[in-house]
């Protein structure tokens, strides 16, 4: 697996997450489900016309894309910034590359990976904010 393979899949997850997030947060009438499914449909139809070549795995991009779009289904209230969404998509890619063989083929595994990524990002950003407040408080004292 060369660098192009990892980069193309990571980029797919990133674009999926940010695209879905912006799509359903910008347009009120578009639900997260519609945002995720519609973008995934477009990408899947495009990828079906290309065979994997030059290290770009067009057969796997739809799977990574739909998984990334699950991250983008998060609400603004929980994830706050696009940076958090982007980080979550990177964590998702990491989990996807090394996902366990035991859960191979299980339905919902992509969603579970996305959920794990989002939870980690939300927690780490809140811990970061709390530690900043704590350090500031200590400096004042």
């Amino acid at each position: 697996m060369d660098l192009t393979y990892y980069l193309s899949l990571t980029l797919s997850a990133l674009i999926a997450a940010i695209g879905t997030y912006l799509f359903h947060n910008k347009y009120d009438k578009v639900s997260p489900v519609l945002a995720s499914a519609s973008l995934t449909l477009v990408i899947t139809l495009i990828c079906h016309n290309f065979t994997p070549s030059n290290g770009v795995p067009t057969d796997q991009i739809p799977y990574v894309f739909i998984g990334g779009s699950f991250i983008g289904m998060s609400t603004r209230k929980k994830t706050k910034t696009i940076l958090n969404i982007s980080l979550a998509s990177l964590f998702f890619s990491l989990i996807y590359f090394k996902s366990s063989q035991f859960f191979q083929g299980y339905g919902g595994a992509l969603g579970l990976s996305a959920c794990i990524s989002v939870l980690i990002v939300i927690t780490s950003s809140k811990l970061l904010i709390r530690s900043k407040h704590y350090i500031r408080k200590k400096r004042i004292q």
Partner: peptide, 21 residues
């Protein structure tokens, strides 16, 4: 539970698949 967190639906589906298996 986990309202507004992406991947919630997939997690619930995963639970169903794991329990069925």
């Amino acid at each position: 539970i986990m309202n507004g967190i992406g991947g919630k639906l997939g997690t619930l589906a995963f639970i169903g698949v794991v329990l069925a298996y």
